[in-house]
Computed example of a mutant assay.
Amino acid sequence: MNRMEFPGGGGEAQIRYLDGDFKIVRPGSYVRCAISSRPILIQDLKYWSVERQEAYVDADAALEAYRRHNKL
């Protein structure tokens, strides 16, 4: 399964983040940002960490996660 097989579905999705793509493990319409806890619609998901298996709402949140993880 990939992101196109579940176009909606309500509720929070569970996702496995891969390099350049992701796999939906449990269908839903959104995931939560690991930094802000804001919901991110699946169709708007652009930033995530494969290593930490977390999603980020935007580039700033992804940078903050990188800084926290790498203590910069």
Rank of each mutant, 00 (worst) to 15 (best):
M1R: 13
M1N: 06
M1W: 03
N2T: 12
N2S: 08
R3G: 13
R3C: 11
M4Y: 14
E5C: 12
E5V: 03
F6P: 02
P7R: 08
P7M: 05
P7N: 15
P7E: 14
G8W: 07
G9P: 09
G9Y: 09
G9I: 09
G10W: 09
G10N: 06
G11L: 04
G11Y: 10
E12F: 09
E12R: 13
E12W: 03
A13L: 02
Q14S: 06
Q14V: 10
Q14W: 01
R16W: 06
R16L: 09
Y17L: 07
Y17S: 03
Y17K: 02
Y17C: 07
L18V: 15
L18S: 10
D19Y: 14
G20C: 04
D21L: 12
D21S: 15
K23A: 12
K23D: 13
I24E: 02
I24T: 14
I24A: 07
V25W: 05
R26H: 10
R26Q: 14
P27Y: 00
G28M: 00
G28S: 00
S29P: 15
S29K: 11
S29R: 10
S29F: 02
Y30V: 00
Y30T: 00
Y30G: 01
Y30F: 12
Y30M: 00
V31S: 01
V31W: 00
R32D: 02
R32P: 01
R32N: 10
C33R: 02
A34F: 07
I35H: 14
I35S: 09
I35Y: 14
S36G: 03
S36R: 08
S37K: 12
S37H: 14
S37E: 15
S37I: 06
R38E: 07
R38H: 14
P39E: 01
I40L: 02
L41G: 12
L41Y: 12
L41E: 10
L41I: 06
L41T: 03
I42V: 05
I42M: 13
I42Q: 02
Q43I: 12
D44A: 15
L45F: 10
L45C: 12
K46W: 03
K46G: 08
Y47K: 01
W48I: 13
W48F: 12
W48C: 01
S49M: 11
S49V: 15
V50K: 14
V50T: 13
E51W: 03
E51Y: 04
E51I: 01
R52Y: 05
R52C: 10
Q53C: 07
Q53I: 09
Q53G: 09
Q53P: 05
E54D: 07
E54F: 04
E54M: 09
A55F: 06
A55H: 01
A55Y: 03
A55C: 08
A55T: 13
Y56P: 01
Y56V: 02
Y56L: 00
V57T: 05
D58A: 00
D58P: 00
D58W: 00
A59H: 04
A59I: 00
D60T: 05
D60K: 15
A61H: 15
A62R: 06
A62G: 03
L63F: 14
L63Y: 10
L63R: 10
E64V: 03
E64L: 15
A65I: 12
A65N: 04
Y66R: 02
Y66C: 04
R67D: 15
R68Q: 09
H69S: 06
H69A: 11
N70E: 06
L72A: 15
L72H: 15
L72G: 15
